[in-house]
């Protein structure tokens, strides 16, 4: 299968090569440098640059030089080089978008000699946000509010569902369960204790189900009831910052479902990116 595809690709490239050269009118050629590494780069570069009957790119992976042959009446080298840059390859005229470059396969990630250092500290991609592990509370926090760990892990679980990441959600559910088990009931205030008794069983039930599957759909079903119970708990015990109780009318097969979030901006854990901003804040629980 792989081989036949390769052969097919090679054939296509060969064919288009000969055909194009033959058909470009008012042809003019120019030699330019395009940065890249390997044979794979070559096919990507040429494919991005070529336009049937208008432009033809022939890149040499050793010299990094490309011959651009094009119809002067229809295009110019800048247009060709721009297309190639958008596919991830720098030239002396254009720098590829960073995301296009980073999507290139590892072997193609050539050295970007034309890219100047940014003169100030850039707000680089903050990946820490995506890693809920960094949000895990330390032991010390438990003194102030031992339920904080529970809520923090709940928020982390919610974020995993926003990302539609079933594996991560399962891992977060495990952490949440640990946090839940670590709570010393006798240290809760009377009011919180009463709610705790009421919701404890349901919380454990849902969390265990979320943990034992990696199917996001199933996890979301349980997250619905989990969120209801968590809401009751948070409402009496409070959190150190305002928490937003949010509602999406489309979730749960149109019956609607709720969740808790530390941000007012809606990021829907029931749909994730499919319908990220669907929902609204129905209640703000002040601390």
């Amino acid at each position: 299968m792989m081989n036949s595809i390769k052969i097919l690709m090679a054939l296509t490239v060969l064919l288009s090569h000969t055909v194009c050269i033959a058909q470009i009118k008012n042809a003019q050629s120019e030699s330019v440098k395009i940065y890249g590494n390997c044979g794979m780069c070559e096919s990507t570069i040429e494919k991005a640059g070529n336009v049937n009957k208008v432009a033809e790119v022939d890149w040499n992976k050793d010299t990094k030089m490309a011959t651009l042959t094009y119809d002067v009446g229809k295009t110019n080298p800048d247009e060709i080089l721009k297309r190639i840059a958008l596919a991830g390859y720098d030239s002396d005229t254009f720098l590829a978008p960073d995301d296009a470059y980073s999507k290139l396969p590892e072997c193609c990630q050539y050295e970007r000699v034309n890219k100047s250092e940014t003169s100030k500290v850039e707000a680089a991609e903050d990946h820490s946000k995506h890693n809920p592990m960094t949000k895990l509370p330390t032991e010390a926090n438990q003194e102030t509010n031992q339920l904080k760990a529970v809520f923090d892990n709940y928020f982390a679980l919610k974020d995993a569902l926003v990302q539609s990441d079933g594996t991560l959600a399962s891992a977060q559910a495990k952490e949440l369960l640990n946090a839940l088990n670590a709570v010393q009931m006798n240290k809760l205030s009377h009011e919180v204790h009463m709610v705790w008794m009421k919701v404890m069983k349901g919380l454990v039930f849902d969390i265990e189900h979320i943990e034992e599957t990696k199917d996001v759909g199933h996890q979301r079903d349980h997250f619905n009831t989990l969120s209801d119970n968590m809401y009751q708990l948070l409402k009496v015990s409070k959190y150190e910052e305002p928490v937003y109780y949010q509602h999406c009318p489309m979730a749960n097969s149109g019956k609607g479902a709720n969740w808790l979030s530390k941000e007012n901006a809606v990021k829907n854990p029931y749909y994730g990116s499919q319908m990220l901003t669907c929902g609204k804040t129905v209640e703000t629980i002040e601390n």
Binding site: I5, M9, T44, P105, S273, Q274, L276
Partner: peptide, 17 residues
């Protein structure tokens, strides 16, 4: 934001990836 609609077509995908 909501993700690509489908995996890339075969011929658009660099083989090693």
């Amino acid at each position: 934001i909501s993700g690509e609609k489908k995996p890339m077509k075969m011929d658009e995908m660099p083989e090693m990836e």
